[in-house]
Design a protein around this nucleic acid. Structure first.
Lengths: 336, 336
DNA sequence: TTGAAAGCGCTAACAT
DNA sequence: ATGTTAGCGCTTTCAA
């Protein structure tokens, strides 16, 4: 690896001269600058990031902790985060908590010692269930900027990026009611999560307030040990007269649609289905799934923006911000 | 941030004593060790990784460059890489080339200055098309260990992890022939990639050698600008008598299946379909898609293993290894 | 215009 | 058993 020292020796000047020359410092004569830069280029000199960071206490690196990269929502969020970070000259160190609190804690600990300038985190399922947030609050106490997205907590005082989960599910349910549906069932695998609870409440609220709706609300939860397909099958077994399904995660809607078609329900004549996802998880189904569309790219980008703003004004004690990203109800082929 | 110096001052000992005490050095008295570790724990001391790395020239970080995180194959590979790396005490810095050569080059450059100990890379599409591999060979010239996976090149002398693309497609095609299929069509969106070419050749070879097969081989390519669905539709329009489809990417098989069902083909009676993917991209279709199954977790894990081996024996000039991960032909519902 | 020196936080060889 | 020193590669103040 070629260092300033190498260059300095080759050129018979001091290290500090080289350093300044590479930065086009006014202090250095044009000829020297020329010579230094020429050699640097020739030898493909690149400043050692570790040394620069150690010196400056800035790493230009963001630690990103994602619960589950196999979930398309998080893959897309990571995509957006990387793109936006990269645009601003930041690298990302990615850790995957795999929904485990221990992994989340370890990653946070490991990186909070000068490895990153700040964190973007979506909270692991286990952490949300236990509601043990010490490790996250420890980061805040160390004054390391933190942005939470999607899976957030009121008990952590930091910048956040969320969607209006309650409102989105509420709107979708209201749409189904306005279609004249009388037996609307909710299905999902995220009841443990903050977002899952909000979405479920949005559904319950809409059902409760629906005039002329007599059925009780029904919620089917897919647990870790369950197979999505089995729960879907059970739903249809137990509710042959179901006329609308709202899915609050990004796979069970597709599963419900496939099962419904297999059982010869007419979609959307007999049965409406609304999924919850960034875009159609399966763009190839027929009919195409209607969805509550969350703008995942915006979620990722906003997270980076909030973090970088905070990084720039670390002294300023701005109030922490919560940014809510709009959702859309996109009616495609599985609603009337 | 609490440093050795802080601890040393508080305890009235020298920095080096603290450093050694934290490592349970024999040189230090048990009492001192006790005192030091107690305070370190109390103050939640964590060694600064930058300083340790700068000193030791080892970062315990792997640079991972992925062409497209929205492709489930790469998401899963990243999942496996992170898991295996983490198991061995390595962090990963993730860069997404988004199939662009420029981004791939930038990331490689940026991280090759002491930020990472080695790289795991799958080559961007643009890079493979242009076949401009200077940036990768530059890494090798700097003696930075590099492992390529999936999308590799003969012109780069490094460790590699691949699957037997030719053999897998060959076997799948032979299966279709043995089913008695007479009009087997290949579809895919990766003709530009090394793996795409190999898979296509595997198909062509099988067709050529199939006794009693009279049709010419037919290949449908989905270009960047095309929509998968449109190409699938075109395939069925132009070949109403198609009786088997083999997909060499991980989405077009699903699209073909959905389209076939919509067109009222009987699957698998009239038409067999074989996809190419880790697992069923859409586990909810009916019938379930038969696939060439690539063991993506193994691909990711092996990449990490090869890299770590190389890192441990950087002096040893072992021959570079290419590891081939087995594939399986998994016959589910879309083959006879 | 250039260079010397200190220091970021840590380790390790070499005193004491 | 503990401390001093030098140095990883870089930046920056201060001196020449």
């Amino acid at each position: 690896m070629v260092t300033l020292k190498h260059l300095a020796e080759q050129l018979n000047v001091s290290v500090s001269t080289v350093s300044k020359a590479l930065k086009n410092s006014e202090e250095i004569s044009p000829e020297t600058i020329e010579r230094v830069q020429a050699l640097a280029k020739f030898l493909n000199y690149k400043p050692n990031r570790l040394a620069v960071s150690l010196k400056s206490s800035r790493t230009n690196t963001i630690g990103v902790i994602i619960p589950n990269i196999l979930n398309h929502f998080f893959a897309k969020a990571l995509f957006a985060i990387e793109q936006e970070a990269s645009k601003h000259g930041y690298n990302i160190i990615t850790c995957l908590s795999n929904e485990k609190q221990s992994k989340e804690t370890d990653s946070l600990q490991l990186l909070s010692n000068g490895s990153v300038d700040g964190f973007i985190v979506s909270i692991a399922e286990e952490t949300q269930i236990n509601n043990n947030l010490d490790h996250l609050n420890a980061i805040i106490r160390q004054n390391i900027p933190l942005v939470l997205f999607d899976r957030v907590s009121d008990e952590i005082n930091c910048d956040k990026v969320v969607i209006d989960d309650f409102g989105a599910a509420n709107e979708a349910t209201n749409h189904l009611v306005s279609e004249g549906r009388k037996n609307i069932i909710l299905i999902g695998d995220i009841e443990n999560l903050s977002v899952g609870k909000l979405r479920t409440n949005g559904y319950l609220d809409a059902i409760e307030k629906a005039s002329g709706y007599s059925e009780n609300p029904k919620v089917y939860t897919i647990k870790k040990k369950d197979k999505v397909e089995d729960v879907v099958t059970q739903l249809f077994d137990e509710n042959p007269k179901v006329d609308a399904i709202i899915s609050i995660d990004n796979v069970s809607g597709v599963a419900a649609l496939q099962k419904a078609l297999q059982l010869n329900y007419k979609v959307p004549e007999d049965l409406s289905i609304i999924g919850f996802s960034d875009e159609n998880v399966l763009p190839f189904t027929y009919p195409k799934l209607s969805t509550i569309s969350q703008h995942t790219i915006d979620i990722g980008k906003s997270s980076v923006s909030l973090l970088i703003d905070r990084l720039k004004n670390e002294d300023e004690t701005d109030k922490m911000k919560t940014k809510t990203i709009k959702t859309n109800l996109v009616l495609r082929g599985t609603t009337k």
